[in-house]
Amino acid sequence: MEEKVIICNDLTKQFGDFYAVNKISFDVYKGEVFGFLGANGAGKTTAMRILCGLSYPTSGKASVAGFDVYKQQESIKKNIGYMSQKFSLYENLTVSENIEFFGGIYGVERSEISMRRTDLIERLGLEKEVNKMVGELPLGWKQKLAFSVAIFHQPRIVFLDEPTGGVDPVTRRQFWDMIYEAAAGGITVFVTTHYMDEAEYCNRISIMVDGRIEALDTPENLKKNYSASSMDEVFYQLARGAKRSDN
């Protein structure tokens, strides 16, 4: 039996009489790349924020890295990395300063930080940009850097909320190479995306529609079950019934 790092049971988040997340249940296994799909407004980000300890659920049960989402948010936070939809490194700090800061607040030792930083800069090929303000980097580089910073403290799980939005195809490919590398290193990856080619890269995916999880399986099985030739088609079949959208 594989180790479950995220266990989710009937998890619900209600705003007034609006069910942003409606009784979702799923498990995520260690080292897996789990795709969390859904149309805009389906409730992906809300669910993810609960799992990251940023928001309280209304009902249901969930644990992340073995910690309860109601009571042990701070313990969850020690064990996860998070990359939000909004770019959130400090634009007026340099590449090197951002790495140092985010490593530092997760309790990584200074000597360890400089070692890992040298290594990271080399892998990203950012040697010339080390002392540049992050705000001056092109978007693709920013996203790669943000991901690297999110896993810098070697968390057990990393949550990525639409990490490749607005990024060119080549950079997206490189980004996914980094994701695989992280997963191979034992980090569980929980990722939302709107790109269906990216969905194919995931070990398993769930598709959310109007706050519920309507499908959950490997990409191959999903395509088989919905007798579709691509993930695009699967998604379309499920999501066209959606009543909610962003606006």
């Binding site: 998070y82 770019f87 997760y106």
Partner: peptide, 14 residues
Amino acid sequence: EVGTIEQINVSPIK
């Protein structure tokens, strides 16, 4: 406003 506080809130900073 910039969103960096989210990154702080999701970290174990007290």
